[in-house]
Structure formats: structure tokens, C-alpha cells
Computed example of a mutant assay.
Amino acid sequence: MEIAVLIPCYNEALTIGKVIDDFKKELPNAKIYVYDNNSRDRTAEIAEEHGAIVKKEYRQGKGNVVRSMFFDIEADYYIMIDGDDTYPAEFAHSLLEPIMNNEADMVIGDRLSNGTYESENKRNFHNFGNNLVKGLINTLYKSNINDIMTGYRAFNKFFVKSFPVMSPGFEIETELSIHSLDKRFLIKELPINYRDRPEGSESKLNTFSDGIKVLRTIFTLFKDFKPFFFFLLWAVIFFLLGLAAGIPVIVEFLSTQFVTKVPSAILAVGLEILSMLSLACALILDTVVANSRKQYELELHRVKALIRSK
């Protein structure tokens, strides 16, 4: 069985050599792939010196790198890891075990359960952001995933070859989690240790701008995957706002038989029309998504048959 270690990299010259050596020690028969994403340092050269298979991805963003990796690399089992040496390689065996035993399609390396992320991570608001994203997704999907945004994951071939990567950047982890929940893939979480970046290694994440991108991704995927609840929510909001604007007009008309609050009446009618349009969108798009899910299930059967034939 062939194992592929996937390492997307951008300016990780300080740590990439150690990450490769650690995985060669833990998984000596695995192929280690480093996809260099326009690094301005010696990341690619160092990765080659340490024996990795190095390729270039010129479209900037981690999502673009993962997309190319999933397209290009053929293996039975995959491990995705960041090149910043924050995830210990020795947990690779425990992440792969449920995949190899057909207990999961994706295994998540959970940094948050044992408290090492909160103690090691020195970046302000990252813990708050992780908890916010986790709460939103678990509420929307009635799930209990503890670490939505971890970069340490294992996959089987079935998952990799059927996952449509849409996010271009660091939102990819959020997309992986939401896609898995929405398409009912088997997910398992295992606690792992986390360590902060070594001295001199700088994070590529911007707490606020990348946080906004992640929230925008959740908003977009919620609209795409659960349009009935998305547009029903807007229908209720518009209905209540229209009611608030229209009640004084109705009360005035019932008591005087006249309407002097014409702007309020127009506003109320407009809001109620928007509410009805949102409800219509909810019903129509719910049918569209249901048919899309059926088509995706048929595509999964085709992918699984293709994998088995190989």
C-alpha cells in the first residue's frame, strides 16, 4: 500500500528539512511530496536535498496547492501536514490506522483537546477564532468536531479523488470539514500535540484578514450546501422587519381609516415581498441541491468503482 505525505509550503526553509526527516523516520516507505508555492527562500532546494519530491504550484494560496496535490498524486493513503514543524510526525501512525482499517475517510489531528494549542500558540485571537468557527459549523451541521481548522489530516484515496477543492487559500481546512459533514463521509478525530513555530519562523496567517475569509467561506458554503435554511432565515428576518414597519400603519388604518405613514407602508410591503422571494428561493434551491446530492452520490459510486478497478 502506497502512502503519500503532502506538504504544501511557502517560505519554510527554516523547518522543511526537519519535517521531511521526521516523516522519513516515521514512514520510511512513504513518498514525501513538497509543493512549493512561490517561496522566496530556499524551501524547494532544501526539500530536494532532504529527499522529497518537489513540485511547483504558481497559483498562490494553500487551497490551490492542495487542489494540485489531490489532482496529481496517486496513492492509497494520504497524510497532509504543514511545513512549519508545528505537528509532530510521530502521530502519523495513529492518524493512518483508522483509514487503513476502513473506519474513516478522513482523520483529523485534533490540536485542541489536550490543551497544547492554547498553551503553545502565541498568536492573539487564534483561539477565539478557532472556537468561533467550530461553534458555527457544529451548530449548522449538528456535529461535534473539535478542531475544524487543523492542518494535520489523513485521507483515503476515495476521499481525495472525490473532493472538489473550491477555496484558493487557508480556508481549505474549513472547506474540508464542511464538505465531509455535508457529504456524510466517515470522520474521526484523534488528539495530537501541537508546538509553536521555532524562533525565526513566521506565520503566513493574518488573524483578521484570514479570519474574515474563513467566515466568508462558511457563509458561502452554508448558502451552497443548505440553501433552504439559509434563505428561510432571510425570509424570517425580512418578514419580522416588515411586520415591525407595518404594524403602526395597520393600527393607524384600523383606528382612523386613513394611512398617513406612507413611507412606512411602502417599506413594509417591500420587506414582505423580499420575504416571499426568499422563501421561494429556499424551496426552489432546496430541490436543486437535493438533485445535486443524488448526482454526487452517483459520482461517488463511479469514483469507487474506478479505484477498485486499479
Rank of each mutant, 00 (worst) to 15 (best):
K25E: 15
Y58K: 14
E26Y: 08
E57L: 05
N11Q: 10
V34A: 02
N38V: 10
I20D: 03
A47Y: 06
P28V: 13
Q60P: 08
D41M: 07
A47H: 07
G51D: 05
D21V: 09
P28D: 11
S39L: 03
K31R: 15
E26I: 15
D41W: 06
N29V: 10
I32D: 03
I16V: 10
Q60C: 12
A44Q: 04
N29T: 14
R40N: 13
Y35S: 00
K25H: 13
K55I: 12
Y33I: 09
A30V: 12
C9S: 14
F23I: 07
K55N: 12
Y35Q: 00
G61N: 03
K56E: 13
G51C: 06
K55M: 14
D41R: 06
H50W: 10
D22T: 08
I32P: 02
V34D: 02
F23Q: 06
I7H: 01
I53V: 15
P28F: 09
I32C: 05
E45M: 12
I32N: 03
D36H: 07
I53K: 11
I20C: 04
V5M: 05
N29F: 13
R59P: 04
R40I: 12
A44Y: 02
T15E: 04
I16C: 00
R42G: 06
D36G: 07
N11H: 07
K56V: 09
E57V: 15
Y58E: 15
G17S: 07
I20N: 01
K24N: 13
I20E: 03
H50C: 11
E45P: 08
K18S: 10
I46K: 00
D36C: 09
K24Q: 15
L14R: 08
Y10K: 15
V54H: 01
V5P: 01
R40K: 14
C9Y: 00
I7S: 01
K25W: 11
A13K: 11
A13M: 09
Q60E: 15
L14W: 03
V19M: 05
V19L: 04
I16W: 00
A13Y: 07
I16L: 01
K18L: 08
E57W: 04
K31M: 12
G17A: 08
A52P: 03
A44I: 04
H50F: 14
E49C: 09
A30F: 12
V5Y: 02
K56I: 10
I16N: 00
N29M: 14
R40Q: 13
R40D: 13
I20G: 02
D41P: 06
E48T: 08
Y33R: 07
A4H: 02
T43F: 01
V19R: 02
R40Y: 09
K55E: 13
G61Y: 03
V19N: 01
D41E: 09
I32V: 13
L6I: 08
K55H: 11
N11A: 07
I16Y: 00
E12Q: 12
R42F: 12
V5T: 04
